Simulated scan of single mutants.
Amino acid sequence: MQVDKKTVAVLGGGTGMPVLLRGLKHYPIHLSAIVTVADDGGSSGRLRTEMAMPAPGDIRNVIAALAEVEPIMEQFFQHRFQNGNGLMGHTMGNLILAAMTAVTGDFYNGIKEIARVFNVKGRIYPIANQNMFLHAEMLDGEIVSGESKIPLAKKRIKRVFIEPEAVEPLPEAVKAVREADLVVISPGSLYTSTLPNLVVPQIADALREAEGKVVYVCNVMTQAGETDDYSAADHAQAIIDHVGEGCIDKILVHNQDITESMRIKYAEENATPVDYDRERLDLLGMEIIEADIIDDHKRLLRHDNNKVAQLLCSLIDITKTEHDKER
């Protein structure tokens, strides 16, 4: 008798989400990625403005992470043009997403077609199938508009919100979160990559009412202009403030010291290690999962996709298949 595979839904964007997905795709699970489309900088910002489409950059990175293709094809998809009138700064993947949106007449349909061509493992859902804009209200009351401009304000952020307020998430994305055996909030820029997904009302409702457990994979380092001096509890509290009580069941934190050389490197960016304050996390009512979750072979601090995927899948009693153990 065949047992149905467990389902895992991952929410996020930026650089943190693809790292998790690269590890999770090797497990025998039904995987869904719900991805922010609020980016307004660089190539994504230009295409948003010129074609009135959702931002493709985070979607592109998720397609690359979940694709099962030859390395040269991933390099082709992620290639960024360094010269050329009008082309400079664009990535090939963003241009392909823009072209497929035009061909199919719909951003989500375009994503599905590209995912099929690139043999993507899992389902990819943009948080919305329309253009949306991110705003931040600072503690002093100033409203800063635009994902790329929010960290540059270098002010303490009170809350973020999106426009239009009536933005409709894809029904499939809401269903994936509500019915998943495990929901993962991925690491990344807290206010500009993580929260833009979570503040969509239907997604917030689905998180609070999720049938499975919700796990937040906490950032390892703070980010200048967004989370200066934030502890793990501060990160979690920001999510709760935006989504509501009961939206996080577990938090995964790195429990090893950061080397002095790495601290010095990140200090140049005004970033410091995220301390996990156990007492405050306990008061927030979430289970703390402590582990060494950093890839020691990377030049910068990055979550180890294999370590994190193994930890997350163990929460739903899933291990790699024999085929994938050989990878």
Results as ranks from 00 to 15, higher is better:
92 M>C: 10
100 M>K: 15
43 S>K: 05
98 A>R: 03
56 P>N: 03
98 A>M: 13
78 Q>L: 12
69 V>G: 11
87 L>M: 14
70 E>Y: 07
43 S>G: 07
42 G>F: 12
79 H>M: 10
69 V>A: 15
80 R>N: 07
78 Q>G: 03
97 L>N: 06
92 M>P: 02
85 N>F: 15
51 M>R: 03
56 P>S: 15
80 R>Q: 05
90 H>A: 02
60 R>I: 00
46 R>N: 14
89 G>W: 00
93 G>F: 02
46 R>I: 11
101 T>L: 00
49 T>K: 09
63 I>K: 09
57 G>I: 00
56 P>A: 08
84 G>L: 03
51 M>N: 11
53 M>H: 12
44 S>T: 05
62 V>P: 01
83 N>E: 10
49 T>R: 14
90 H>T: 07
56 P>W: 06
43 S>Y: 00
96 I>V: 11
89 G>S: 06
62 V>I: 15
77 F>I: 04
60 R>Y: 10
49 T>V: 15
52 A>K: 15
74 E>Q: 10
72 I>S: 09
78 Q>I: 01
57 G>A: 02
77 F>K: 02
85 N>W: 15
53 M>E: 13
55 A>D: 10
75 Q>I: 01
65 A>Q: 11
79 H>K: 10
60 R>C: 07
48 R>T: 00
66 L>M: 04
61 N>A: 12
69 V>W: 09
101 T>N: 09
42 G>I: 06
63 I>A: 08
101 T>S: 11
86 G>K: 10
60 R>H: 08
85 N>V: 13
86 G>A: 07
83 N>S: 13
76 F>Y: 08
85 N>Q: 12
52 A>N: 15
